[in-house]
């Protein structure tokens, strides 16, 4: 449950962002990142629907690679992915 997934910010409206990871779109709250600017094209670590940190694109890509491997190894778990 403490696993955060990197997502790319596609649009921002107030504290709400439309984010995307590998073709999957989610509404993500930026409320916990309200003290720093978040713009379209940024990458954020998302946990239970909330962005907890901005990250570089390279970090996002290596995490996606890892989660692909974990999913391939274990199948999707009961927990929601965000």
């Amino acid at each position: 449950m403490c696993l955060a997934i990197p997502m790319r910010v596609e649009s921002v409206e107030g504290h709400l962002a439309r984010c995307q990871a590998k073709g999957v779109f989610r509404d993500v709250s930026l409320f916990m990142l309200q003290d720093e600017p978040v713009a379209v094209g940024d990458y954020v670590m998302v946990h239970v629907g909330y962005a907890i940190q901005k990250v570089a694109e390279a970090e996002a890509r290596s995490a996606w690679e890892l989660y692909d491997q974990l999913l391939a190894a274990n199948g999707p778990g009961d927990s929601p992915p965000s």
């Binding site: 449950m1 916990m32 946990h47 909330y50």
Partner: peptide, 16 residues
């Protein structure tokens, strides 16, 4: 239920 990473979003929802 959750550790800090999960409880913080609960707190954020309350604060908002």
């Amino acid at each position: 239920a959750g550790f800090e990473t999960t409880t913080a979003p609960v707190a954020a929802m309350l604060a908002e």
